[in-house]
Amino acid sequence: MSSQSRLDRAYKNAKVIPFDDTSKFILFSDCHRGDNSFADDFANNRNIYYHAIKYYYDQGFTYCEIGDGDELWENLHFETILKAHKNVYQLLQKFYIENRLEMIWGNHDMVYRDPAYVKKHLSTYFDPKTDTDVPLFPDIRYEEAIILRHRENHQDIFLLHGHQADFMNYVGWRINRFLVRVLWKPLQVVGIADPTSPAKNYKETIKVERRIKKWIATHNNQLTIIGHTHRPRFPEPGELALFNDGSCVHPRSITGIEIENGSITLIKWQIATTGDGTLRIIRVPLEGPQKLTEFSTE
């Protein structure tokens, strides 16, 4: 099956979520939450990330994670990740309880495409304080793709991780997972990058983007938002409507995409120094806000 066929299938089977100009979504991907070891790229930004999603929770946003939220190539078990970043999952649980949590699986958490695996590992967790299993995300579903469909103008926003356009990270993901666990994780600790990742291989990034752009061009310039490559992207109106929310493992910052008031914005959260030397976490708009209708295919 070609990358174009995989993208077609993801679009056809995508979960459809109605929205309007009063809806608010925050899109993050590629958090790669790990075990808090030296190989855990997320650990460096976890305080920034927690502060950001707490802001979005308080502001009434729906949280959409579009793949690679959990690092399940380097780590064998979700329980290890939960233990390392329990406060993050407790906050995500609040989104879930209020029906404001949407999750998409990527290549590094591709095991979540199996509902039985998700039910076994994410429904509950063991609480040593009470010596019992307590709910975490009971009945949660991970999707391959989501379509946000505007109630009034019927504009679709296609959300997916993007590895559908990357053969070895979709079809051959088990081979790459093996290589990462056995070879690249130990080398990552000493600073050697994993060449299987498009995030660390510019040529692979270009190939992935080119394939998805080809699909967009043959589907009436369908507005599409991906992650996977870790490279933020925000096109101008009139260009091919491929957006990328970046990642949560940039050096000392995270990037994401906000959809609010019928507009789309690429944002960054980072640590900044104030005039008196105090460190604080701030939100910085990088591109936009731009009206979604500027990318309308009609």
Rank of each mutant, 00 (worst) to 15 (best):
T130V: 15
T255N: 14
R113F: 07
L240Q: 10
E74N: 14
R33H: 11
H219K: 01
E98Y: 05
F78D: 02
R233C: 02
F295S: 00
K120F: 11
T229Q: 05
I216C: 05
L179I: 07
A84F: 01
N176W: 11
Q59M: 11
R233H: 11
V88F: 13
T62W: 01
D41T: 14
F38E: 14
P232Y: 07
L122E: 05
L187R: 11
D139M: 01
Y89R: 00
I271E: 15
T224Y: 12
K203R: 15
A39N: 04
D8G: 09
Y170I: 02
L286S: 01
A43T: 11
Y56P: 03
C248Q: 04
F158Y: 09
V182H: 12
R149A: 06
N75S: 06
K86T: 12
I97R: 13
G67W: 05
N13Q: 11
D20N: 13
N261R: 09
I254Y: 04
S37C: 02
I271C: 13
I271L: 13
N153R: 11
E143M: 04
I282D: 15
Y96A: 05
V180T: 15
Q90H: 14
R151W: 05
G162P: 09
E260D: 13
E144G: 15
L279F: 12
E143F: 03
K268T: 08
E239N: 12
A52E: 00
P235Q: 08
E74Y: 14
D8L: 13
G238C: 04
F19I: 06
N201D: 08
R210F: 10
D41M: 15
L187S: 05
T255W: 08
Y50P: 07
I267K: 06
T265E: 13
T132P: 09
W184E: 06
T196R: 00
A116Q: 15
K207C: 08
A199T: 02
T124R: 06
D194K: 01
A241H: 04
I259H: 09
G106T: 02
G67D: 01
D58R: 06
G172M: 06
L82E: 04
V284H: 12
D21Y: 08
R252I: 08
G256Q: 01
A241F: 07
L136S: 04
L160W: 04
F178K: 13
N107I: 04
R252V: 11
P186Q: 03
R231P: 03
M103S: 01
H121A: 09
